[in-house]
Design a protein around this nucleic acid. Sequence first.
DNA 1: TGATCTTTGCAATTGAGTTGCATTACAAAT
DNA 2: ATTTGTAATGCAACTCAATTGCAAAGATCA
Lengths: 139, 139
Amino acid sequence: MKMTIHEKRLQSRDIQPTAMRMRILLFMAETKSVISLSDLEEKFTHADRTTLYRTLKTFLEHGLVHQINDASGITKYALCSENCTCSYPDDVHVHFYCLSCEQTFCFPHLGIPNYDLPENFTPSNGNFVITGSCPSCSS
Amino acid sequence: MKMTIHEKRLQSRDIQPTAMRMRILLFMAETKSVISLSDLEEKFTHADRTTLYRTLKTFLEHGLVHQINDASGITKYALCSENCTCSYPDDVHVHFYCLSCEQTFCFPHLGIPNYDLPENFTPSNGNFVITGSCPSCSS
DNA sequence: TGATCTTTGCAATTGAGTTGCATTACAAAT
DNA sequence: ATTTGTAATGCAACTCAATTGCAAAGATCA
Ligand SMILES: [Mn+2]
Ligand SMILES: [Mn+2]
Ligand SMILES: [Zn+2]
Ligand SMILES: [Zn+2]
């Protein structure tokens, strides 16, 4: 009854570790980057788009990944850190979207201020994106 | 040769002050809120969607409005302040998206930190959105 | 095994955003 | 005032990511 680290990770988030989910988690873990549904489609050409879509949705609902809305209009996803609970403001961090290569980057070390919101505004999450040019694209 | 305040505002941004554009600017100025293309469609039932769309695009390109990407997947727009140049980080501020009523709010008084980005990341703009519940929807 | 629930695949749909092109309105020039 | 050119508007069609319905396949448990 050996169990991989990724299998454990899924089970710890109450996600049934199917073969498909294992493969996607593995891919996200080893690329370490922010990905889109299209990225998964390119990688898993044999799998159906809907399955990939629903896998990401499941991951999201169970707090295994966080969602990023950059300026591209395409929804991006990134693996949460081991101990992440996706809570505001502690687990929210800045992302960077390169307008040139359209890549999105996670900056986990760049947190967000504890904003003093106007009366009766109750925050639950945040999406902080800086757009610009990444190192590869900055001439 | 009298000229309204709104007419001047358009001309100061090098936007030809057509009747349509005047009406849309007026609407945005008096509602003082963050709007979407659909909001304009509801208000200006006689006008064509494309015209409204291109009006917003023109406003955006000429720095009269700023664009907000909240978690709704629907692009929102808000009038810039008089002296805004939409520059990062000074003119970038926090927005709030209510998950319940799906309204978006401008918080011009909540600026953003001058983040120390990793080497060679060059910022040009920012989109900072806090999601949660607004006063009307916070029970 | 059989019954039941979950996951996956296929196909179709939604809806925001966008574009091409014809028409109309406007403004300058004659 | 008429002509002429440019910009704005309207209509229709299209793109594309996201989403849903339903059937088939797979897993789980009695
Ligand atoms: Mn991240
Ligand atoms: Mn704003
Ligand atoms: Zn880049
Ligand atoms: Zn609300």
